[in-house]
């Protein structure tokens, strides 16, 4: 799968990402392939599992920023919602928002996996 196909498969606007990153397809590809090594998702999962909300907020916030810059639309929407819940300290209804992030992340990693090197 090409990088463009990967973006389209996750419902994201590839041309927008490309335009923001100097039109360099190689660069976009390099950054996207690096994303599966980013530690913030694991950090988020750990923090949520031990109710460490400040750490969870930091990780969710970073994921939100990365998803925004790399144009991962679904992950961005999900992580932004989770970030705001954590900021508002509304910890009792975190679970569904966290699950949204997990789903978006897993779907994204699956698609990135399928990108030809």
């Amino acid at each position: 799968m090409t990088i463009r196909e990967m973006y389209e498969a996750t419902g994201a606007d590839y041309d927008d990402v490309l335009a923001r990153l100097m039109g360099k397809e190689e660069l976009v590809k390099r950054l996207v392939l690096k994303y599966d090594k980013d530690p913030n998702y694991d950090k988020l999962k750990n923090a949520i599992s031990i109710n460490s909300y400040q750490d969870a907020f930091e990780a969710a916030h970073t994921i939100k920023g990365l998803a925004a810059n790399l144009g991962f639309a679904r992950l961005y929407t999900a992580s932004a919602a989770l970030t705001e819940k954590l900021r508002a300290q509304a910890y009792e209804d975190l679970a569904p928002l966290f699950e949204d992030v997990c789903r978006a992340q897993e779907e994204l990693l699956e698609k990135i996996e399928a990108v030809d090197d």
């Binding site: 100097m22 950054l31 994303y35 980013d38 913030n40 970073t62 920023g65 810059n69």
Partner: peptide, 13 residues
Amino acid sequence: DDSELNRTILINI
């Protein structure tokens, strides 16, 4: 920036 990927993006730019 605490995220390596974010720093990478900026360094590329």
